[in-house]
Design a protein around this nucleic acid. Structure first.
Lengths: 66, 66
DNA sequence: ACCAAAAGTAAAATAAACATTACACAATGA
DNA sequence: TCATTGTGTAATGTTTATTTTACTTTTGGT
């Protein structure tokens, strides 16, 4: 699965730490999710989508190996 | 977080076992996700959405305690 | 009532998410 | 040059997702 968190952050011009606080997770979680090191839960995906005011699908998308 | 998996299943008229096979998880996972016993990963959420041809938000939604 | 299919549940095990702490590195500005 | 800010990464630990097996209960049809 790939994600556009970095792009969405750039649009809102916020840091990983700011996003972490807004969502309620650690900065390292943001960093590792952003880098694709693990797949976040659906609750987190919905929170990202709500925060960035886009759909979940605009942030996260399936890849062939999913 | 609440979900409408049972409703979506009813619309497509499929069993938990059929959904499990279509998505690629165990039937018990479908059952426990449907009953809200745990929160699935974003990959699963995207697969549910793709299978039911709806958005993730039409299946899963945040609640106050999330 | 009987039978079969579907749904619910539970225990135990494994895999994965997420937190915490800590450190390294690059860029920027005083 | 030094300090700061943002980012990447690693180790370890706790919690939670997910599987497997298996059993019980419900539901629908005959």
């Amino acid at each position: 699965m790939k994600n556009k968190l970095k792009i969405q952050r750039a649009i809102k011009d916020i840091t990983q730490a700011q996003l972490a606080e807004a969502i309620g997770v650690s900065r390292q979680s943001i960093n590792t999710i952003e880098k694709g090191k693990f797949v976040p839960s659906t609750v987190l995906a919905l929170k990202f989508a709500r925060y960035f005011e886009v759909s979940v699908e605009e942030i996260f998308s399936l890849e062939d190996d999913d």
